[in-house]
């Protein structure tokens, strides 16, 4: 690159060589067959991709809210990096959901134009962070759980889900490591940080039970070899979580069963075969935290009909 001519030919769209990184990005899913596996229920696969995609999209949003507010520059970089990884996972999963659904909805249609009750994320992802201890406690628990899930999903009968999971495993391994190190530093730091870390762990504990409750979609797809049954992740999660907390000189509170919070939103009409009573985020029952996120995330996209971005 000729530095004194950094501007040359900026308006010439034919020549990419002058840009430091070229124009395109390599497609992480290049070569992976995009066809749906034989016999898979399209609606179920779409719903499952939305579940895992929404988990990543919504937690990424919470991390984005920390940008410019981290306690140290290194954490600015790390949190933005983790937010980007999760956003990338969300984009792949939402795109797959749109393809499985077959109604022409793309990632942006799904992210920007669904109401809260059509979001399928676990409620752990949508909680606002009271402080940095809450941030790392939630990120740690989420990453421990998601890593176990993605590792198993690499064996999915859907080659696309398997490829997305394989990419995610590398990323979430780092997320778990980053968050666990902070849980340990804060738990075993000062008296104040220990107290705050313990309070953060207590606060998220009621939200953990939901991570392991199989939704009927997950149960059906797990039987077909496509999805992971989350009930099977519980033992591995408990082992790692207890180890991190013990290293942080914290005690592990029992993982409480999922309880509907007092202020849940009405769920949308349930798909056939699903329980009619909304029991959690997977059914579209959310806390006000999700409404706050979507108000922020969707407003601009919705305000310019027909806009090109």
């Amino acid at each position: 690159m000729a530095f004194d001519d950094a501007y040359d030919a900026l308006t010439d769209h034919e020549d990419d060589a002058r840009w430091a990184y070229g124009t395109g990005f390599s497609d992480p899913l290049a070569g992976v067959p995009g066809d749906l596996p034989d016999g898979v229920d399209r609606a179920d696969l779409a719903a499952y991709c939305l579940m895992l995609g929404d988990d990543a999209l919504i937690l990424s949003h919470r991390l984005q809210q920390w940008v410019t507010r981290a306690p140290e520059l290194e954490d600015e970089l790390a949190l933005a990096n983790i937010g980007l990884d999760l956003l990338g996972q969300a984009r792949l999963l939402l795109t797959r959901a749109g393809a499985a659904e077959g109604r022409g909805r793309d990632e942006d249609e799904l992210a920007m134009h669904r109401p809260p009750a059509e979001f399928r994320n676990v409620r752990l992802a949508e909680r606002a962070d009271d402080d940095f201890a809450h941030l790392v406690a939630r990120l740690c628990a989420f990453s421990v759980w998601r890593l176990e899930l993605l590792q198993r999903l690499t064996g999915s009968a859907d080659p696309m889900l398997a490829a997305i999971a394989a990419k995610g495993v590398k990323e979430v391994t780092y997320h778990r490591d980053y968050a666990a190190q902070w849980v340990v530093r804060l738990g075993d730091g000062t008296e104040l940080s220990h107290r705050r870390m313990a309070a953060a762990v207590d606060a998220l504990t009621p939200l953990l039970g939901e991570l392991f409750q199989p939704h009927p979609v997950e149960t059906r797809l797990a039987a077909a070899g496509i999805a992971v049954d989350p009930a099977g992740l519980r033992a591995a999660f408990d082992d790692v979580w207890a180890y991190v907390l013990a290293t942080a000189t914290l005690t592990a509170p029992g993982v409480a069963p999922a309880v509907s919070p007092a202020a849940v939103l009405p769920a949308s009409s349930s798909p056939a075969g699903a329980p009619s009573a909304a029991s959690g985020g997977r059914d579209g029952a959310h806390t006000p935290g999700l409404v706050e996120i979507l108000d922020e995330m969707q407003a601009l996209a919705r305000s310019v009909p027909g806009g090109a971005w």
């Binding site: 999209l57 949003h61 984005q64 809210q65 940008v67 956003l87 969300a90 984009r91 939402l94 990632e107 942006d108 992210a111 920007m112 922020e296 995330m297 407003a299 601009l300 996209a301 310019v304 806009g307 971005w309």
Partner: peptide, 8 residues
């Protein structure tokens, strides 16, 4: 960032 109109 949190208000960007598309995921891209």
């Amino acid at each position: 960032i949190t208000r960007a109109p598309t995921l891209h």
